[in-house]
Each structure stands twice: as structure tokens, then as C-alpha cells.
Amino acid sequence: MPTILLVEDNEANRDMLSRRLVRNGFDVTCAVDGNEGFAMTLSGHPDLVLMDMSLPGMNGWDATRAIRNQPEIAGIPVIALTAHAMAEDRALALAAGCDDYDTKPIELPRLLGKINALLARNEQETK
């Protein structure tokens, strides 16, 4: 079962999205801010990270950069989640090293498509 780390500070968002992902066959763990997100990526080596961008403490952009700068976890795909569909957010997320980008409200089929594409890509690369 693929493992996903969901980094999201809003409790209801975290609960809702993690439950929807579990229903779709993922093993989900959660972190509540950027620092914890980075630490749990390092300790747990998830197959993929879903990263909210506006987080307290270390924000999602900084947490993603931290992951990219840590060689043993630098290859883990990160999908940025933001609340608003703004072009500059997308550019910022990609510049920080995110592999893909999705906006809230989450349309689950769309997000699952992005998750599965990145998981498949990474599986190809590790072969």
C-alpha cells in the first residue's frame, strides 16, 4: 500500500482529506506544520508528500526546499496544495521543488490522478 504524508495545519481539512485518501487505498500519516512535515518525511520516507503551502512556523515552500536539500529524501515527490488558484502560487510551488500542484477545493479524482502519476514515475525511476 503506497504511503502518503499529508502536511496540513487545519484539523478538519486533515481529517477529511486523510479519510478520503484511506478510502482510496493509501496508507496516510499526517503532520500539522512544516517542521513536523520535514521531520516525518525524513524519519518515515513516505512514497509521496501532500504539502499544504500556508502552514504555521515553517511554511510549505520552505519545508519542500528542506526536503529537496536532504539527499536521502530529495527524490520523494511533493504535491503542493493551496487554497487559491493563482498563477504565482503555482510558479512558487514549482520553484520550491514541488513536483505538482493542486488547488482546494480538492477534486479527489484529479488529485488521485496526480498522485498516481507521480508514484508511477518514481517507480519507473527506481527500477
Partner: peptide, 20 residues
Amino acid sequence: SALLHSLRTPLNQILGYCEL
């Protein structure tokens, strides 16, 4: 945009829970 964010977040939660 701060107000919009505050308005959207609970709505998105309601929509997500509706789907569940």
C-alpha cells in the same frame, strides 16, 4: 484574499465531508 481564504476553508470542508 485573507477573508476569501477564511470563507473558502470551511466551505471546502463541508464539500469534502459531503463527498465522504
